[in-house]
Every structure is written in structure tokens, then in C-alpha cells.
Design a protein around this nucleic acid. Structure first.
Lengths: 198, 198
DNA sequence: CGCTACATGTAAGGTGTTACATGATTCC
DNA sequence: GGAATCATGTAACACCTTACATGTAGCG
């Protein structure tokens, strides 16, 4: 093996491996910045508060991803007026990359539904404790329904999101359908469980 | 001291929020072994085929977890009759541990719904491509509905699962409710998207 | 002055998958 | 004898969270 191929291997092994931020974090961050420029801190708050029902990002994802996006010139720093915080803005290339990423088929994580796992083995747990699990899921769905209702009201007041509102409403509606399905299922399930002896 | 009080606040903010160690893989494996003894290979097949709609485990999880469970005497090897494969059986202590694990509140993974992430920023993508995403989700839900139907029929024929059937049916029903909710939502969403100009 | 919110980042660790390596058994 | 399936395991890697460290800004 000659020196050059050794060096090439070194590059791919160490340098390029260092920034393997996932496409989906890039999508979320570029998407948020397509609505308005933000700092990393605000980015996390916005993602938590507006995408929170179906998405999450932590600081440990956001800052390295922002650095990588900046390196690729997909975002840039806004001129700071003596401010110490760094506000990022999406670039033209970033907008194009965002549209490319959005068009890619969604990659869902491997399913891991702790409630259904427990219920599947409910015979080991007994009907009463199984029912407790279902009741908790129902309550959680009720809370989500209320939160989604509040989110809808808030959305319709926020003029910055006017262009996005029709699409955002679709995501809120998806959450509501899912929550109502959980509630209906829970009511049926509780009926079934009450019929299991002991 | 102010430094200390700040640190104390930091500790209470973070430590109280800390979650118990997951080990949901242990739950799935002990649960499967509570139905019948199996090899690691079969374990993975069974989990894929019967819990597949809401759970997944890979070999890279199963074998190390089995070794750990054996170390804790929660499972044991069945006497091999000249066979080279290792069949594991749950022990008494394992059954008790399983019931403890099942009673713990389910820990759901952080939400990461790629479809809704894309739809939220659908204004960047346009109504047509957004509709494509919704159509794919709808088709996927239709397929899931058919699979769940088949799973129900199979369940009712399998006498080994008789004791578990009522609980397993609850998990199948949960999948059906969720799938139908997706289909209903998709139809509504497609109507909305068709009304967005450009 | 002290509290809360704003802000940036990294190190360590947890959790899981994928790709590989290896071989036995079964069936045609 | 070759293919498919059964079987076991590990190393590398991908991804993400949590804990930690360290401030500044604004406000009552």
C-alpha cells in the first residue's frame, strides 16, 4: 500500500467519520430556519414547542449539525450587532438542499411501542394491571388532544406562519386522529379486559 | 454559596428527570421465553413475526442480552440432546423479573415521525409532492390493515397462544385503530391539499 | 444582588443496527 | 454436492441523549 492510498484511507476513516449528522436532523433544522433565522438555543425551543408532537432534537444534535451545515454553506451567520449569540440564516443552497431532503421518502425508526409490548404479555401481568396501562395511555391521549387544540389556536394567530398554516394544520390533524384512535381503542380494550376473569 | 446553590438547582433539574435504565430488550426476550423455550435465532424470528408491528430486536441485541440474562440466572439452557444449538428457557426468577418489568411504566422513544416532519414544511415542497407522501402513508396503512387481519386469523389457530390470545388481540386491535385513523386522516388531508393552489 | 432565561458547546455513554465471520443441518 | 436455512457471535458504526462546563443578559 502506497502513501497516498494510506492517506486516503486515513481521511475516510477519521475525518469524514467525524461529522456523520443524520439527514433528518438537517431536514428539521433547515426547515425551521426556512421559517425564520434563529440561534441554536431558539432552534431547540421552537422544535420542542412546534414540532414537539412528532419530532425532537437535543443540543447535542443541534450544535454539531449547525456547524456541519455552515461548513457546507447551507446556513450562514447573520451579522451580529455586538451580540454574542449566533443567529443562523438559511442560504440559497440550503433552501435547495431542504427541498431535496423533504422529497426523500421518510425513514421511520424501528417500532418500539412499550405499551403494546407490555400488553402482549398481559397474561403475565393480569387484567387489572394491564387495564392500568391502558388507562394511562388513554389519559395521555386526552392530554395530547388538548395540547393539539391549543396548538391550532396558536397557529391561527401567528402571522409568521401564514404560508405554512395549511400544512401545519395537516400535522395537527394527524395527531388528533391518532389520539382519538387511541381513546376509542382504549375504551374497547377496557371493556375486553373487564371480561377477563381474575 | 451561590455556586453551590446553582449547582444544586442544576442537579435537581437533571437528576429528577433521569429515567430508569431501559432494558426493554430484556422484557421482550423474557416475555417471548415465557410463552415457550427458544434459541436466539428463533427468538428473533418470533419477535419479528409476532411483535413485528410494534417491536423489533436484532441479533446484536438478542445474543448479548441472552448472555446477560443467563448470568443473572433469569434464563437457563435446556439440556441439549446432542444438539449444537442452544435453547433457552425462562427460570422462576426470570418470570418474577418479567412481571416486575411489565409493571413498569412504558418508556416511549422520542418522537421521530418523518412523514409529519416533511408535511410540516410542505410549503417548501408544494401540494403535489406533499400529496404523494400522504398517498404513500395511506397505502402503507392499508397494507398494515391486511397484515393485521392475517395475524388475527393465525392467532386464533395457534393453540400455544390460547392463554395469551385475549391480550394479543388487544395489540392487534390497537394496530387496526391506528391504521384506520391514518387512512381517515389521509383522505381528509388529500382533500385539503387539492384545495391549495399552485 | 440574585434569579431566571438565554446561549454554546463537548464528552461520555447508551442503545441499537449492519456487516461480517463462521459453521452445521436439511433438503433437493 | 449445492442451496437454503438454521445458528451463533462480534466489531464497527450510527445516532442520539444526558451530564457537564461555562458563561452573559435582563430584570425586579
Amino acid at each position: 500500500m502506497d502513501v497516498n492510498s494510506r492517506y486516503a484511507r486515513y481521511l475516510t476513516d477519521t475525518l469524514e467519520r467525524r461529522m456523520p449528522r443524520s439527514d433528518q436532523s438537517q431536514t428539521a433544522i433547515l426547515g425551521a430556519l426556512s421559517i425564520m433565522p434563529m440561534t441554536g438555543y431558539t432552534l431547540r425551543e421552537q422544535i420542542r414547542d412546534t414540532l414537539g408532537h412528532f419530532w425532537s432534537e437535543s443540543f447535542g444534535q443541534i450544535y454539531p449539525t449547525l456547524a456541519e451545515l455552515e461548513r457546507q454553506a447551507l446556513v450562514e451567520r447573520e451579522q451580529a450587532d455586538g451580540s454574542r449569540s449566533t443567529t443562523y440564516r438559511i442560504t440559497q443552497a440550503g433552501s435547495e438542499q431542504l427541498r431535496r431532503l423533504l422529497a426523500q421518502p421518510p425513514q421511520e425508526p424501528k417500532p418500539r411501542n412499550g405499551l403494546l409490548l407490555r400488553l402482549f404479555f398481559g397474561a403475565q401481568l393480569g387484567p387489572d394491571k394491564s387495564a392500568d396501562l391502558v388507562i394511562q395511555a388513554r389519559e395521555s391521549a386526552e392530554r395530547r388532544l388538548a395540547e393539539l387544540n391549543a396548538a391550532r389556536a396558536e397557529l391561527l394567530e401567528d402571522s409568521r406562519l401564514a404560508a405554512d398554516a395549511p400544512y401545519v394544520l395537516l400535522t395537527i390533524s394527524a395527531g388528533e386522529h391518532a389520539a382519538r384512535a387511541t381513546i376509542d381503542w382504549a375504551d374497547e380494550a377496557l371493556g375486553e379486559l373487564s371480561r377477563i376473569p381474575q
